Deep mutational scan, measured.
Amino acid sequence: TFTSIVTTNPDFGGFEFYVEAGQQFDDSAYEEAYGVSVPSAVVEEMNAKAAQLKDGEWLNVSHE
């Protein structure tokens, strides 16, 4: 299960995956970082959410 939350205070020191406002979700980078295949429906969902981000916001993507 993939989830996401919007934050204005990303923790770059941890093992977190963020999408910056104005960027798209990079499923290849996510797969490389976590060894998890990302279904195309999830990629579309995360890109739709990322498109709604305002300046200074980040989308924190995770999975269980």
Results as ranks from 00 to 15, higher is better:
1 T>M: 13
1 T>W: 14
1 T>P: 09
1 T>Y: 13
1 T>H: 13
2 F>V: 03
2 F>W: 15
2 F>K: 00
2 F>A: 00
2 F>T: 01
2 F>G: 00
3 T>C: 14
3 T>I: 13
3 T>M: 11
4 S>I: 08
4 S>F: 13
4 S>N: 03
4 S>A: 12
4 S>Q: 05
5 I>F: 15
5 I>Q: 11
5 I>V: 13
6 V>W: 02
6 V>Q: 02
6 V>P: 03
7 T>Y: 05
7 T>G: 01
7 T>N: 03
7 T>P: 00
7 T>R: 00
7 T>L: 07
7 T>D: 04
8 T>V: 09
8 T>K: 10
8 T>L: 09
8 T>Y: 08
9 N>D: 11
9 N>W: 08
9 N>G: 06
10 P>V: 05
10 P>W: 02
10 P>D: 02
10 P>G: 03
10 P>Y: 02
11 D>L: 10
11 D>K: 11
11 D>M: 10
11 D>T: 11
11 D>Q: 11
12 F>H: 09
13 G>H: 11
13 G>M: 10
14 G>I: 08
14 G>K: 09
14 G>Q: 08
14 G>Y: 06
14 G>M: 08
14 G>C: 12
15 F>H: 15
15 F>T: 14
15 F>A: 12
16 E>F: 15
16 E>S: 14
16 E>C: 15
16 E>M: 14
16 E>R: 14
17 F>A: 02
17 F>V: 03
17 F>N: 00
17 F>P: 00
17 F>H: 04
18 Y>L: 07
18 Y>C: 04
18 Y>I: 05
18 Y>P: 02
18 Y>R: 05
18 Y>A: 02
19 V>R: 02
19 V>C: 04
19 V>N: 00
19 V>F: 03
19 V>I: 12
19 V>K: 01
20 E>F: 10
20 E>K: 15
20 E>M: 14
20 E>R: 14
20 E>V: 08
21 A>K: 12
21 A>H: 10
21 A>F: 13
22 G>A: 04
22 G>E: 03
22 G>R: 06
23 Q>V: 05
23 Q>Y: 10
23 Q>L: 08
23 Q>N: 09
23 Q>R: 09
24 Q>E: 10
24 Q>F: 13
24 Q>N: 11
24 Q>Y: 12
24 Q>G: 09
24 Q>K: 12
25 F>I: 03
25 F>Y: 02
25 F>G: 01
26 D>I: 07
26 D>S: 08
27 D>G: 15
27 D>K: 15
28 S>H: 14
29 A>M: 09
29 A>T: 06
29 A>R: 10
29 A>N: 04
30 Y>K: 01
30 Y>G: 02
30 Y>S: 00
30 Y>F: 14
31 E>W: 14
31 E>C: 11
32 E>I: 13
32 E>V: 11
33 A>G: 04
33 A>E: 07
33 A>Q: 14
33 A>L: 15
33 A>C: 14
34 Y>R: 07
34 Y>D: 03
34 Y>L: 06
35 G>N: 08
35 G>Y: 04
35 G>I: 02
35 G>D: 05
35 G>L: 05
36 V>Y: 08
36 V>L: 08
36 V>A: 04
36 V>D: 03
37 S>N: 09
37 S>P: 11
37 S>M: 11
38 V>Q: 00
38 V>F: 02
38 V>A: 04
38 V>Y: 00
38 V>L: 06
39 P>Q: 03
39 P>M: 03
39 P>K: 01
39 P>E: 03
40 S>E: 11
40 S>M: 13
40 S>V: 12
40 S>Y: 13
40 S>G: 09
40 S>R: 14
40 S>Q: 14
41 A>E: 12
41 A>S: 13
41 A>H: 14
42 V>S: 03
42 V>D: 04
42 V>R: 03
42 V>F: 07
42 V>T: 06
43 V>K: 10
43 V>C: 06
43 V>N: 04
43 V>S: 07
43 V>M: 06
44 E>F: 08
45 E>N: 06
46 M>W: 10
46 M>P: 01
47 N>V: 04
47 N>H: 04
48 A>E: 11
49 K>L: 14
49 K>Q: 10
49 K>V: 07
50 A>H: 01
50 A>W: 01
50 A>L: 10
50 A>M: 05
51 A>Q: 10
51 A>K: 10
51 A>S: 11
51 A>R: 10
52 Q>F: 09
52 Q>P: 00
52 Q>A: 13
53 L>N: 02
53 L>T: 01
54 K>V: 08
54 K>L: 09
54 K>P: 01
55 D>W: 09
55 D>Y: 11
55 D>P: 15
55 D>C: 11
55 D>Q: 14
55 D>F: 12
56 G>E: 04
56 G>V: 02
56 G>Q: 03
56 G>N: 07
57 E>R: 02
57 E>V: 01
57 E>N: 03
57 E>F: 05
57 E>T: 04
58 W>H: 02
58 W>Q: 01
58 W>R: 02
59 L>P: 00
59 L>H: 01
59 L>V: 01
59 L>S: 00
59 L>K: 00
59 L>F: 01
59 L>R: 00
60 N>A: 15
60 N>K: 15
60 N>G: 14
60 N>W: 15
61 V>S: 00
61 V>H: 02
61 V>T: 03
62 S>Y: 12
62 S>N: 08
62 S>R: 15
63 H>R: 06
63 H>P: 03
64 E>P: 09
64 E>F: 11
64 E>T: 15
64 E>Q: 14
64 E>L: 13
64 E>I: 14
